[in-house]
């Protein structure tokens, strides 16, 4: 069974390939966009690589939930997620750590939810569900 450390290591090496960064720049708490410099096209590339690396399928909605870009003002108003919007986000991204984001749920900071550890936990769950871990 793949341990969290194993998955984390493999996710890190995938990010090294996708973002052309050094392994020692990557920490579990690093945010993909803010700390590691991932741009929108890189997110797609990362998803592609994770699928190949781990032999899993990652439907787009699972990592990029539509609620994140919603035009529904009950969920997202004046650039901030409402309590309802935040609850929807939490449901959509169960592996993200919302501790900081909750204090200031600005849509512009949404990308910070994507940390190396979050991706690793997401992947590990996929592996467990598909019987590969």
């Amino acid at each position: 069974m793949a341990s969290h450390e194993d998955v984390l290591r493999k996710v890190s090496s995938t990010l090294v390939e996708a973002l052309n960064i050094d392994e020692d720049e990557i920490k579990p708490a690093s945010t993909l966009a803010g700390d590691l410099g991932a741009e929108s096209i890189d997110f797609l590339d990362i998803v592609f690589r994770l699928e190949r690396e781990f032999g899993i399928k990652i439907p787009r909605e699972e990592l990029f939930p539509e609620v994140a870009q919603t035009s529904d003002i009950e969920l997202l108003r004046d650039g901030k997620y409402t309590a309802k919007g935040l609850a929807e986000l939490k449901k959509s991204l169960p592996f993200a750590n919302f501790d900081d984001f909750e204090k200031n749920p600005e849509a512009a900071l949404f990308g910070n939810l994507f940390t190396v550890d979050m991706i690793a936990r997401f992947v590990q769950d996929k592996l467990v569900r598909s019987g590969k871990a």
């Binding site: 797609l44 590339d45 998803v47 592609f48 699928e51 190949r52 787009r60």
Partner: peptide, 10 residues
Amino acid sequence: LVHMRPEGAT
């Protein structure tokens, strides 16, 4: 072609 998804290809 090593990878094809609705969003793109490698």
